[in-house]
Design a protein around this nucleic acid. Structure first.
Lengths: 149, 149
DNA sequence: ATTGACCTTCACATCAATGGCAGGGTCTGA
DNA sequence: TCAGACCCTGCCATTGATGTGAAGGTCAAT
């Protein structure tokens, strides 16, 4: 298929499809006239790329990770250098961090929504203690995440 | 504590601590001399912010979500407008998308690493079929994710 | 042969998250 | 009082992911 169809089927601007190609994430064939010719399975591939981008992975890492994701034949690219394996290992850990960070916060938001929907909608104290508007006690947050990128 | 200490304890450049403040994610007090004065619990808060940023949430959404995350008193900000609740609901769904996308891909990478480490490290065909270097059969990817931001 | 819908490349603009620096105040200790 | 370490407020640069438009080629249908 050509770029227009892929764009529609994935909801991705053509511009970005070309950009992903430029970044080495996809490599469409070319028709005799120079038009890009996208294989059917690139539909999923593009969705995958966008999901990962949306989850905070830069194209650089996606490029690294993609070769591991072609499911049926996992042995896909030939000689993973030790450095590459180490990097993958490392990125795997970071993905775990991301997942747990997101999960914790997702749960917190879900709890919040549940509470609001269920109970009386925010029992505002009828008579606020006069004087200061300061919040006396300190709620403690418990979520964290790593960095480095 | 002042900005330098917070910076060291969270591994965050001072520049960014000021940026997060500018974005409405944190609101430190000011000492009489104008120096920023950070509360102890902002340490966790900053780590949380960075985790979320690293997971792909823009500051705009973090700002939206943060008020729901102060655990002990979940009823924290008074009148969640219906629009705000709807937005939260929506973002909750997107967080779920992100989580499942990340999880699928994490698993795939983990599988890959396991396979490589376990079996013979990539049985490269001794005599590659002469002529083309083209990969005949097509592996199919199965992961996807949504978009919109 | 011309129109319109598609495609090409190239280039510049934008936005969010960051890095960096300049010019200047504050405080502590020698 | 001077140095050094810290803080302040701008402001401009960069990077990655995108938007957008110009100038032009291809192709199917009229």
């Amino acid at each position: 298929m050509r770029i227009g169809e892929l764009s529609e089927r994935t909801g991705t601007p053509r511009r970005l499809l070309r950009y992903y190609e430029e970044q080495g994430l996809i490599a469409p064939d070319r028709l005799p006239n120079g038009y890009r010719d996208y294989d059917e399975r690139l539909v999923d591939r593009v969705r995958q790329i966008r999901g990962l981008l949306d989850s905070g992975l830069p194209t650089r890492l996606i490029r690294l990770v993609l070769p591991c994701l072609d499911r049926p034949c996992t042995i896909h690219f030939p000689d993973p250098t030790p450095e590459m394996l180490a990097t993958l290992e490392h990125e795997l850990a970071r993905m775990d961090d991301r997942i747990s960070c997101l999960t914790r916060n997702r749960d917190a938001v879900a709890d919040y929504l549940a509470t609001v929907r269920a109970g009386a909608p925010a029992p505002v104290p009828a008579v606020p203690p006069p004087g200061d508007g300061t919040d006396p006690e300190a709620p403690v947050s418990t979520v964290s995440g790593a960095r480095e990128r």
